[in-house]
Design a protein around this nucleic acid. Sequence first.
DNA 1: CGCAGGCCCTGGTAGC
DNA 2: TGCTACCAGGGCCTGC
Length: 298
Amino acid sequence: MPELPEVETVRLGLARHVAGRQIQAADVLHPRAVRRHVAGAADFVAAVAGRTVTEVRRRGKYLWLALDSGDAVLGHLGMSGQMLVQPPTAAAGPHLRVRFTFADGGPDLRFVDQRTFGGMLVSRGGAELPREIAHIARDPFDPLFDPDEVVAALRRRRTGVKRALLDQTLIGGVGNIYADESLWRARLHGDRLAASLSRPVAHRLLGHVTEVMTEALAQGGTSFDALYVNVNGESGYFDRALAVYGREGQPCRRCGTAVRREPFLNRSSYFCPRCQPPPRRPGPRLPGQSRPRQRAAG
DNA sequence: CGCAGGCCCTGGTAGC
DNA sequence: TGCTACCAGGGCCTGC
């Protein structure tokens, strides 16, 4: 699933293959792909036609093409989105949602998204930073990312530390995979109350977050070639390096204890029950804490 | 305002 | 074989 390292890999690919080129036209093949462009698909298309891509930028899991008009084509890959650079003659796959052709007659940019959680919009005047994502916090790859500030904010949260890590208004770019991996490295259970972490422990956790995503980016960077801007939907080459995510029942790489999977926010958390002991709960159950599977009412 | 949880969506797969 | 249920899950939205 595309998290920060994967999105940054895509950004690098787009910067290489799309920056500096003039868009000839855009074609929206599925309305849901531009559902967040409230002015509609026709307006989206009109806003990009004839514009030149000046830069490709990113914050957290969002990325955008800065245009010479001052606008931006803002995109999010969701769970299954891909930005593919393909020859205009390449056949359209079943999940092609938006296609951009270029005035130079070179490769198209194609937004392909099976599950349609992703999408695009044109942000007016958003070339520098789209206002639509002003609430997204800086991510660890951002030069202005301030660990002290994030640690302070984290320690103000009265919720589980994993929930806090996934909150994009606190820290950008962390998803389920890297949250679990970071917590394993820090030997912390995700249900630990964020506010209960000491300042040094919180700093150490943040260091692991940065470290694991940096390592993943280094792996992701190896896996795209000239005409294919990699996302590949899966975890990429980094999946073989994962310590806990997706490894239910397999031995912890540190202590050999079987990795456990538990329901978490209608998805899963993976952790080592020995290295990452669940917090004791003397009082009422912590909200958001893992609990046995419950069926939704209805 | 902080926080919890529902919902959106589809293809692959497990189970019956 | 064909059906159902489940799974992946980021972010927006609502409600408390």
